[in-house]
Design a protein around this nucleic acid. Structure first.
Lengths: 338, 338
DNA sequence: TTGAAAGCGATACCAG
DNA sequence: CTGGTATCGCTTTCAA
């Protein structure tokens, strides 16, 4: 039922190869012939069969992206990665296949092994990630979003989370704060060795240490109870806390709520800096100063690196986006001693 | 480099057809032969070439999902659709190809026309959606999430937004409220005739009318300023408002913030019911009563319908999930007259 | 229970 | 500038 290339050829009165060359542009075609062929293609609504094509070409024009584990649409950041990649891919006429991390290594093997995709983007890579050696060994184009402990030669792009954490502390310290807490991701994020979480935390804690600020931190679940607990924990460690670095996009609004409940005004009693997507910090009350997490940019970048690899280029194996601070209403000088 | 079927055959000392039959199970194979073949497959790490396979089979085992326009990961609901579909698909060994709505009808045509995918799921269908007639005409398996004005025979799944809107009003009215406002989606959502937005709104407004409640509503942008404006607008229309139906997941936290700013306590001064994903309402302070938007379930359902169509079944062309109310802390009796 | 061989739909080399 | 045809990797009929 679907028209095939031979049908087009017949209708246009040319040979199949000619039609193929009109399609690919790999050989000069007379104006007249091209017109007839294109006319026939339109008339029949012909589309080259992707599968048939992929067997002779060495490519499918499809790339795969591996979603993070347990992903039920929780995190905005992850979504932004995905959307940025789809859009970048579609803009270049490529298609995106989504894989879930649950089946992990096996699924990656499947889609690249069966030549379904030309390359793979893996997000949420962990410090010791079994997918990393796999990707290294299959030797097909692959890009990591995130930095494993040992990336080998694998191309990876990342945000400099350590610098981001340090920058937050530095900002608050510069405002005069000498008692700063770090409110981080959920405990199990650290447990599974998510690089971004570990690096942001140590970036912050190291900077605290370097500046003589007592290093205080707590993980936090993104629920009212979890946040309340984390904040209590932080104050327990240092009752003089006058500033918080929050790296937990989901918990951020709850942190504001909780501080309000505790009658700590932001920024009057407590200053805040977050590491999170910029539009998210901007929308809060008060708008929160942040080190913006450039998720969309990272996604776009990851795609570009992958496209480069597929095209046979040799992109830089490491790219680290530098943090930038956006000052908003949530930071101020520490309150006078009570 | 990648092992091919013939390589397996050679190594196992059998003919290619035998290998193929071992793979497909379409013909009895002696235990001994099967063992040798499977051994060879494992040894060579052989995976059948998906493209080559798709040209003889009538299927690719891949389905496409069309993302909404302008989607930058804004909406949780949309994400949940996507994740639900990927997971459902992966669980059945199928793969998901993501398309963006920007390239619209053309891209759908491309991927199904070129036999890249066995079927398509379209989300965020609008009342008059050009993709609907297209899908109807190509006659390939397709499922809509959402209900266009004229779905024809197209299989679609949806949440009963009209009933949801009505249920919210009913709940508040039953609590004693006689002045209820509806705070909806952004103005342009209505402008582009998003079915869910229009139906939820008219469900609510009709129910208000039926109960003698003055029908009051306002669209709202999901920003502090937008929400402030919408709330002012609502009070301008009816200063006696004691309850709000909020159908705007992104604005919901901002509504709470704004009411707090205006010194209206929830639920003391103002009752609230939201239409939004349940976990989102649950996480607020106070936890918000809601009519849960079953995004994940809709996504799963959409996939199942599509899988049915691909398998040659004839699933019901319409499926409407019924709303359900979750009572939480944000609803109470109206305050005594001031 | 197995093998030989004819395709599937498009591409690209070899000729002209 | 164009045509014939081998070929890609797998499936499936036909034959044994």
């Amino acid at each position: 039922m679907a028209a095939r290339l031979v049908d087009v050829a017949r209708l246009a009165g040319v040979s199949p190869s000619t039609v193929s060359y009109v399609l690919s542009g790999n050989r000069p075609i007379s104006e007249e012939t091209r017109r007839r062929v294109e006319q026939s293609i339109a008339e029949l609504g012909f589309r080259p069969h992707a599968g048939a094509r992929s067997i002779r070409r060495q490519a499918t024009n499809v790339i795969a992206m591996v979603l993070p584990m347990l992903s039920d649409g929780q995190s905005r950041v992850q979504m932004q990665f995905v959307f940025a990649v789809v859009h970048a891919a579609r803009a270049k006429g490529m298609n995106l296949l989504l894989l879930t991390a649950e089946d992990g290594v096996a699924e990656i093997n499947n889609v690249v092994g069966s030549a379904m995709v030309d390359g793979v983007i893996v997000m949420e890579v962990q410090l010791h990630d079994p997918r990393v050696p796999l990707l290294a060994s299959i030797g097909r184009p692959a890009v990591l979003i995130g930095t494993p402990e040992d990336p080998g030669d694998l191309v990876h792009v990342d945000f400099d989370f350590a610098a981001a954490g340090a920058m937050c502390v530095q900002h608050l310290h510069d405002l005069g704060h000498r008692h700063i807490g770090f409110l981080g991701q959920s405990a199990d994020t650290y447990a599974r060795e998510a690089g971004y979480a570990l690096r942001a935390r140590s970036g912050a804690l190291d900077e605290m240490a370097a500046r003589g600020v007592p290093p205080v931190w707590s993980p936090a679940e993104a629920s009212p109870a979890g946040v309340a607990e984390a904040i209590e924990d932080l104050f327990g460690q240092d009752p003089e806390l006058s500033a918080l670095v929050v790296y937990n996009e989901q918990a951020l609004p709850l942190v504001l709520d909780r501080l309000a409940q505790l009658d700590r005004r932001v920024p009057g009693d407590m200053s805040l800096v977050a590491i999170c997507p910029d539009d998210q910090a901007e929308r809060l009350l008060p708008a929160v100063s942040d080190v913006a997490l450039p998720a969309a940019e990272l996604g776009r970048l990851a795609f570009e690196r992958l496209a480069g690899l597929i095209a046979g280029e040799t992109p830089p194996s490491t790219t680290l986006l530098e943090p930038q601070l956006n000052r908003r209403g949530s930071g101020g000088p520490p309150p006078p001693r009570r």
